[in-house]
Structure formats: C-alpha cells, structure tokens
Design a protein around this nucleic acid. Structure first.
Lengths: 284, 284
DNA sequence: GGTGGCCATTCGGTCTGACCTTTGGTAACT
DNA sequence: AGTTACCAAAGGTCAGACCGAATGGCCACC
C-alpha cells in the first residue's frame, strides 16, 4: 500500500516516453514528395507542380515549400530549372550523389590516407572482376583511351593523375554496377586529390602503371575475371605500398603547416569537386 | 575587306563564351560554410553564428541564409537545434549520410536485386578480411551477440532478418573502416527490405546461416584474414544463389505487373528507412 | 533549501507579400 | 523572313512580422 500520509509522495507512474521529435513542416513535405517520387508516381523527367501551386495544395507557405524542394534537390531527386516552363523536374539520384556524400565523409572525417588506400585495395579488384564479366565494347574503348592518355610521357603531373583517375573510373563503369561506380568515383577523386603533390610519381612509376593498366585491360577484354582480380590486386597493392613508403618519409619532412594553404592548392587542377557537389553533371 | 554595301552585314566578332552559370546565393554561402567546416575552422560540436547574425555578416536575406543552412543539414554537416541556445552545430558527416544516399540510389534507381547481391558478394568478403585484421574485443562481442539472437529458433521471420542484418553490420563495423561500414549499412538494409517476404527462409536456411556466421566469427577471432574471406565468400555466395533461385521462380509466378506494386512490396517491414533519412540515429 | 511557477530572452520555424531575374512564347516591326 | 520588343510564368531574393521552443534567472511557496 502507498503511505496514507497527507500530501502523499506522488507515486509517479513511470510513463516511459522516448524524447519525441516534432518534424518540421518542410521535412514532412519533402518526405512525402520523396516517397512519391521513389514510388515512381512521377516519371523521371516530369515536373512537379510549380511552387505556388504546391502552396495552395498543401496550405503551406512558399518558404516551406521551397525548403522542401531544396532538400530534394540536395538529395539528387529533383533538378530545379528557372524561367518559364521551369520547376522541379524529377531525376534519378545517380552515382554523383553517392560520390558526393562519400566525399564529405572522407574530407570531413579526416580519414587517414591509409584508410582510403585500404578501401580501394578491397574494392577495386572487385570492380575489375565485374568489369571482366560485364564489359561491353564501349567500356573497352574508354579504358584504352584513358590509358593512351596516360602513356604520353610529356604530360604534366596533373595530366597524368587525371588520366589515371579516368582509367580507374573507367574500370568501375565497366563493372556496370552503379553502386560500386559511385563509390569508386569518390574514392578515386579523393585519392587523386590527396596524391597530387606527392613527388614520388616519376617516369618509372608512370611506366609501371601503364603496363599494369594494359595487362588488366587485357584481362577485362578477355573476360577473364580471375586474372583481372589478380592483376588489379597487385597493381593497387603496389601503389598503396609506394604511397605508404613516401608518406612515412613526408611525415617527417613536413612538420605541421596550418591547414589553409593545403586547401588552396587542392582546387587548382580543373573543376573544384566540392563546389559542384549539389549541381549536376560531374566528370565521368 | 568587308563588303562596302549599305547596311553592311554586321560582322559579329565571335566572342566565344562558355555557357556560364550563375550560382544561387544560398549555394554560394553553403559552399563557403562547407569548405570552412571541412577545413576544420569550426571544431566539431561548435555552433555557427545564429541566422540573424549571418544575415548581417553576409548581407543576405534570412531566407537565403536559412536555405544554405538547410543544405548543410541535409548533407550532414550541421545539426540544427531550436530554442534559446539553439543554432547550427557542426557535426561530422558519418556513415549514415553515405547510407542514406546509397539507399536513395538503390530505391530510386530501380536496381535489380541481383545488382545488390553482386555488390555484396564483392564487398562483404573484403569487410571480413579487414575485420580479421582490425577487430577488437568489443567487435567480437557484438558479433557473438548478434549471432546468438539469430540462433533463437522461436523468433519471427522479421526477428531473424533483423538479427541477421545486425551480424553482417557488426562485421562491417569490425573492419574499422568507415567507408565500408557506411556502404554495407545501406546495402544490408536494402537487401533486408527486399528479402523480408521471401518464403525461402526456413529453419534449415537459418541453421546454415548460423553455422556459417559461427565459422566466420571464429576466423575473425583468430585474426585469420584468408579464412575469413573464404568463408564469407562462400556464405554470401550461397545466399545469393538461393535468392536467385527463388527470384526466378517468383519471376514466373508473377507475370509482369506494373512497377508500382513491386515497389510497394519493398517498404513492407517496419520503419520506413526513407523517412528517417535526414534525421539522425538509424538502427545499428 | 529545494521545488515549482513565471517571466524575459534568444534562438529557429513559419507566414505574408512584394519585387527581381530568367526564360519561353508571341506579336509587332522592319 | 528575320529581329525586336514585350508579356507571362516560373523560380530567386528580400524585408518584416509573428509564433513556438529552449534556457536562465528570479521569486514565492511549501
């Protein structure tokens, strides 16, 4: 029995309530639209109702509606065009959106270079295997074209690295697996960005890379998955080892400079991968 | 010489200008803030200036500022809290953001189940290898706990699948590689969601899975990468084969229905993974 | 001496209504 | 027939107001 005293200590029934969250209006609308889009209710390329129309339909303010559309845009579900006949056009989220989020994870997480390389060592052989299985003639052409570009001895370091990335991405594309492609896209770019100032890329390294690429391409052409895996494994592993060796040396040379200049240099090559993150059309 | 006729045809100097894009104000601000955050200018957990302050600093309208903050929120770079001491707090984009974008790619891209399985077949062995190398005692405990949960014969199908996913995710976590973990997170959930109504999961299948998990866990415990890879490979491959066999049968049973119901099946289980995509806290 | 109630303050969230810019179409003009 | 000018539709931006939620301080009441 509870104590029969006056002002009995209130026996609080432990009403277990989880924190509870009140979703924002724009989130609600965004979720609703997202579900409908994913459900295929709007065919790809079709336009959502104009903002002002959504306002009347949803009884929300234009601010809210716009915010919702903005969310969907960032998630890569719609592309917004201005002008007459503009509006929010449904679009399939592609590799780019995966790539950009992986990119954020890499850059924001302060991931060690070794983690990147380790991941690539794991994934790229898989890409090579699938490429050997699924490749078509177009893929082959891309591979050869990229490797031709690498072979040019006269190119600058940036050119070499770019062509190198292109080849690796071509392998991923040849796998005909969008998930892996998106992943490799971000990974390659990140490794590229982190490597561009390493001096260890000399003519010798280039030749080795070109040769490795050739044999891997050949395996892919021959539809020989096992060979592709094996060779890619060796190639990527060798690269990782080389980088690791240099990293150790560099770690000692460069004390610790303030972060700012490191960033400034990074956007040098061509398109800054970061600014274009929410917009469409990347580079593959 | 140009023709000296009256009303001489104006020789338009071909001023070659590339298309040029006018970025939106909010995008500019978002990019600026994003770069600063990624550069580590704001330590994690610290708060950005309040909206109204940003308004005065940037000479933009509050609408614009809010849109920019919203973009960063969707990208997982800040978390916005309401109330007095509220504001935009810097946060590291984690696996969740990768998982959610992969999730969108999967659901929006109408990926075939086979592509998912193929990807998993490729990646999960890699996770197993890394797990065998990097695991710590905590990881082991998670693995065993998850597999214990699976072993309970009395559990419902949903329970089994959930515990199954938990185990697989535990392997990814044990790899101590955030990239792979995020990737597998999305992948596992997607496969889970696509599998939940398959009838081929009987007691026999369960026992097989539990046994496989046990041997793999053992390899990880023993820090034996090769064994881990081999066993995981077999396990995942077997699973894929089983699913494929069932899929083929199902494919025949269900003639070819319009895309809508096929999607509807996918969202059956419990929490709709999509609605929670922008908010925090998933399920791992 | 806490406990609870009650502001005031400082945030983000939403709404309103206006105006600007871009873009496509179309009619007038040469 | 080709240009040009203009209009309409749609997104982009802005200013200002008000609402609601969290916090911190203060004070009365057990």
């Amino acid at each position: 029995m509870t104590q029969p005293t006056r002002t009995a200590p209130v026996v609080r029934q432990a009403v277990v309530l989880s924190p509870m969250q009140v979703p924002k209006a724009s989130d609600v609308l965004a979720s609703e639209l997202r579900e409908r889009i994913l459900r295929g209710e709007f065919p790809e390329g079709s336009a959502l109702p104009p903002e002002r129309e959504l306002v009347t339909q949803t009884a929300m303010s234009r601010t809210t509606v716009r915010e919702a559309l903005r969310i969907l845009e960032v998630q890569g579900l719609v592309r917004i065009k201005t002008g007459r006949a503009g509006g929010a056009f449904v679009t399939r989220p592609g590799q780019e959106s995966v790539a950009s989020s992986v990119n954020l994870l890499i850059r924001g997480g302060h991931l060690r270079m070794s983690a990147l390389l380790e991941t690539r060592e794991g994934i790229e052989p898989v890409c090579a295997r699938l490429a050997a299985v699924h490749r078509d003639d177009e893929d082959l052409e891309r591979l050869e074209q990229a490797n031709d570009a690498i072979s040019v001895d006269t190119g600058s370091l940036a050119d070499f690295l770019q062509a190198n990335v292109d080849w690796h991405i071509a392998v991923a594309v040849a796998s005909h697996n969008e998930l892996l492609t998106g992943f490799m896209l971000a990974l390659s770019r990140a490794i590229y960005a982190a490597t561009d100032n390493q001096r260890f890329i000399d003519a010798d390294v280039r030749r080795t890379a070109v040769k490795a690429h050739k044999t891997i391409t050949q395996a892919i052409r021959d539809r020989d998955p096992e060979a592709a895996v094996r060779r890619m494994n060796r190639h990527v592993h060798g690269y990782a080892e080389a980088v690791k060796a240099v990293e150790d040396r560099v770690e000692i040379e460069v004390p610790d400079s303030p972060p700012a200049p490191r960033q400034a240099r990074r956007r040098a090559p061509a398109r800054s991968t970061a600014a274009r993150t929410t917009r469409g059309s990347g580079g593959a």
